[in-house]
Amino acid sequence: MAAYTGPGRDTLSDVLDWAVVRGGAPSVAVQVQDGDGTWFDAAGTADAATGEARAPGERLHLGGISQAYTAATVLSLEAEGRLSLDDTVERWLPGALAGNGYDGSRVTVRHLLSHTSGLFSTGMALEVQRRYGTRAAFREHRYDVWRREDVLRLAVSEPPAGAPGERFWYSTGGYAFAAAIVEAATGNSFESEVDRAVVRPLGLTHTFVRHRADPGYWGPHPRLHSKMFFRDGVRPEDVTPDNWPSLLEDPALPPLDTTKANTSWAWGAANVVAPLDELIVFMDALITGDLLPEAQHRAMWATESTKGAHWLAHTAYGLGVYELTLSDGRTLRGCTGASTGAHALVLGTPDGRRTLAAHVANDYSGFPVFDRLLEAEFGAPGFAYDR
């Protein structure tokens, strides 16, 4: 891989050092692609026991960035005439989105991909909190395999957050329904359709979607660390989108190694593994329209404000992707993803000429690190949750 050092990159390297020395990150890696080539740098160790350094080409679980791969797959199927964004869930999955206040005949594929379906925040589901909310529960359930029908039931296990189309409300459950619709429309597995529609056309030789029982990486990867657990004794019934930070365990506790864990409960929303360079290739193709036909490209980037949704400030969400507005009015396009033990980010300029991807090997210092990286590279304002 070619190395590139140009204006601002020394500042990026300083941010990486800060992230490890003062920011609490075990390790962080960053890659930038622009007209001058590729620049990569990292700090910390991929594995503290061996002292191995972070390196280009590591396989990384992308968490919520996976939703962009799902959305791109659905849009490719629309371009092929296999389905429509305006199809209802009921058409493809009769009776699956029903009960508990839900009506699949009113929820469209577009609603699912834009987080405007009205589905509640799946990560706050009682069953998710019971299995993964505390250290002890995570250790017991980290390799649980969720069946497709279990994930769909989880997505409707609590009442709606709103009416279909009413507002943005982040819900990974919508992407479980989207994945199930991909299977219904094609007769193939969701994972194989992502490979056919996205991975192979872009030549992404080290990118894949984990199958249901697979917790692995298929290549070199850093160890991951989490302290994002609730205190022992916290009841899942008492956790809300507003109070969860106050219920977290003592931050002085050592992190738990979460490197391998099954993520099938977030099927369709969090199962893609890729290296930073291929993540940049993917995002550049979405930004510039190289992957999707014009109509589907426009649909993907037709955004809606996320203000007031307990999500990232200064953002507008499209279909699996978002735009971040900088302090000077410029925008970046991309995705952010979290998983148990890691944060990942990819953002680029709308002309596709400069893209940054980053990975932090824990889930409790990612956004402060991303704040500084974006400011160093783009002059962006800091990330903050929009309350």
Rank of each mutant, 00 (worst) to 15 (best):
L12K: 09
L12H: 08
V15F: 10
A19K: 12
A25Q: 08
G35S: 12
D41R: 07
G44Q: 14
A48M: 13
T50C: 12
T50R: 12
A53W: 10
A55I: 00
I65V: 00
E80W: 10
D87Y: 03
D87E: 09
L97W: 06
N100H: 14
T108M: 12
T122K: 07
R135Y: 02
R139D: 11
E140P: 04
R148P: 01
R148E: 08
S157A: 13
G162K: 14
P164R: 13
G165A: 09
Y170T: 07
A176T: 04
A179T: 07
A184E: 09
S189V: 08
T207C: 12
V209S: 09
L224I: 04
R231Y: 07
E237H: 05
P241G: 09
L248P: 00
D257Q: 08
T263P: 03
G268S: 06
A269E: 04
A274R: 05
D284S: 11
D284I: 07
A299H: 06
H310P: 00
H310C: 04
L319E: 05
L324R: 15
R330G: 14
G341D: 07
G341V: 13
T349Y: 07
T349G: 00
D351M: 07
H359N: 11
D371P: 04
G382T: 14
D386Y: 02
R387G: 14
